[in-house]
Design a protein around this nucleic acid. Sequence first.
DNA 1: TGCCAGGCCCTCTTTAGGGCCTT
Length: 194
Amino acid sequence: MACWDSPTIVFFDLETTGLCVKRCHITQLGASYEDYNFDQYILPRIPIQEKASELTGMTVSGGRLFVYGQRVKTVFVYRALKSFINFLGDFHGPVLLAAHNSRRFDELVLMRLLAKFSLFKRFKKVVSGFVDTLLLSKDLYPDLHGYSLQKLAHRFLGGEYNCHNAVDDAELLEKLFNIWDPNDEDIWNVTKWI
DNA sequence: TGCCAGGCCCTCTTTAGGGCCTT
C-alpha cells in the first residue's frame, strides 16, 4: 500500500540534434499536463544530424531554425531551461517528470544541461524525480512485441503515430499513461528520485 | 568546422553478439 502523496506527473519530451547524450543539443523542449503545455524551440550550436532532421523536420539555415521549412522562434537553451523550471514550479509541490526511455536519454540530456548552466538546485526545488514510461510499459504489459512510443500508440490508441514533435509526443505519452492507469507502486518501481 | 551513442536485456550466452529504445 502506498504511503506517499501522489505527486503531479508532467510528461515531457526532448527533440535533439542526435542521440549522443553527452554531446547532443536540445532543439525543442515540450511538456504536457492536462490542459497545460510547455513548448520552446532552441537553436542548436552543433549541426542537426541527418536522421534527426529527417525525423523532426528541423533544419538550421542562416542561424535560424526551421521546422518543415517554416521558421520558428527560438530561445537560448539557458532561457528555455529557466522557463521550464518556472512552468514546473506552477504546479502544487515538486512534480515527477515522465518521458519515454527517460532513464537512458531525456533525463541524462536534461541533467547534463542543468548542471552545465548551474540550474540543478532550482530544478530540484520543483522536480522530485523521473518516471520512465518505457520501463513502465514493459512492467505493465510484458508480452508486447515492441515498446517504442509509436508501437504503443498503435497498440493502445489505434492508428499510426509519427509525431516527433516534443509537445505532441508528450501529449501522446500522457494519453497512454492515462489509459494504462498505473497504481502508485507501478510508478514507484520505475521512478528515479533526484 | 564542429557532430555522427550507449547501456540494458535476451538468448541459439557466460571466452558473445545482436536487438531495442531515445534523436
